[in-house]
């Protein structure tokens, strides 16, 4: 969105996001210089980033050498030069596997649901809690809400199945207020599985996910609220027109990163909450990779799946990033 000076909203006064939201900064600092001069001027910046670039190369890029495994019939007992090269065989195997596409579909389905509802829940929670007056209570709620993040999925799965069991409290409640006629075995409904996972995920991660938005809200200039109050803006209007726009850059950046991570949803919750009845909806890529790749010590096949996921992730994040830049809403790179 273009930075129109809209007098109605106090947005114009916002220092946040002023810093040239988009990539195009009109001029460079004092005068255009040639590259060497600029490098010379930026010695401090280069010095500050160089050690970490080296770190990235050593700790994050050198191990990617392991990707060669995907093009070999890798055996751990052989040295690199003894491995047998097989080209794209493992990728072909992968794409010939009908189960894999089902896993891909489920992964993306649950990934999208988790992303949408997870983000919405965290932002809503942060916004509402930010409006809370009673400071002590506010801090208490904040602290308690992040507890579920520390509970392992094994324990969560136990609690969820107990709550949702045929004789459990949820069925009891729904039956007594007449929403359903008889108890539903929620765990045995393939159509409900994605929703179940998403609900559990939202419950577990909302408080944790909101922390970053709390931090962002701490950066909002209080003068904006004062000005809004003078104008007689309601609390909702303040939320909508001050708080939310102020944290928008953070929201966008997190969205872009999470879109890149759409496919990396793990397998633990699906494995623990899933069962043979809902298996068609519960199989995800990481579980498939475990059962048919690493679990059988098929390193090459497992690596091929990893590469496939990386490629998808990079494509997704580049698209998201380009899109965000196009509409003028921040960037990741």
């Amino acid at each position: 969105m273009s930075k129109s000076i809209a007098p109605v909203t106090p947005q114009a006064e916002l220092p946040l996001g002023k810093s040239g939201k988009k990539g195009q900064r009109p001029q460079r600092a004092p005068g255009e210089k040639n590259i060497w001069q600029r490098l010379n001027n930026q010695k401090a910046l280069i010095l500050m980033s160089l050690p970490f670039v080296i770190w990235l190369i050593i700790f994050r890029y050198i191990p990617v050498f392991g990707w060669t495994m995907a093009f070999q019939d890798y055996k751990p007992q052989q040295t690199f030069f003894e491995q047998e090269w097989v080209g794209l065989k493992h990728f072909q195997d992968l794409f010939n596997e009908p189960q894999f596409f089902r896993a891909l579909e489920n992964t993306i389905g649950m990934g999208v649901l988790g992303l949408v509802f997870g983000t919405l829940a965290a932002i809503t929670f942060a916004l509402l809690l930010n409006e809370m007056r009673f400071t002590k209570f506010k801090k208490l709620t904040q602290t308690i809400s992040y507890l579920p993040h520390f509970v392992s999925w094994v324990i969560v799965a136990n609690i969820v199945t107990t709550m949702l069991s045929v004789t459990g409290p949820v069925n009891g409640l729904l039956t007594s207020i007449g929403i359903i006629d008889g108890p539903i075995n929620f765990m045995a409904r393939p159509g409900m599985f994605w929703g179940l996972i998403t609900t559990a995920e939202v419950w577990k991660s909302t408080g944790w996910g909101a922390i970053i938005y709390f931090a962002a809200m701490a950066g909002v200039d209080p003068q904006l609220y004062e000005a809004a109050k003078v104008d007689g803006a309601s609390r909702f209007r303040q939320m909508w027109h001050i708080t939310l726009p102020s944290i928008r850059p953070v929201i966008i950046v997190l969205l872009i990163l999470n879109i890149g991570n759409l496919i990396n949803i793990g397998f633990e919750k699906q494995m623990l909450l899933g069962n043979n009845i809902v298996a068609d909806r519960a199989l995800v890529i990481d579980l498939y990779a475990l059962n048919y790749g690493i679990g059988m010590f098929r390193y090459s096949f497992g690596t091929a799946i990893g590469i496939f996921k990386s490629v998808i992730s990079v494509i997704l994040i580049v698209i998201a990033n380009t899109f965000a830049k196009k509409i003028g809403e921040g960037r990741v790179f």
Binding site: A29, Q42, V53, P63, G66, N261, V314, I317, V332
Partner: peptide
Amino acid sequence: SRRDFVFNRPISFILVITMFVSGGLIPE
């Protein structure tokens, strides 16, 4: 974060890529 920094974009890019790329347990 310094948009005037010469290596701003390349460093950002190689950084973000590491989120999605991993060599696996044995190479690490």
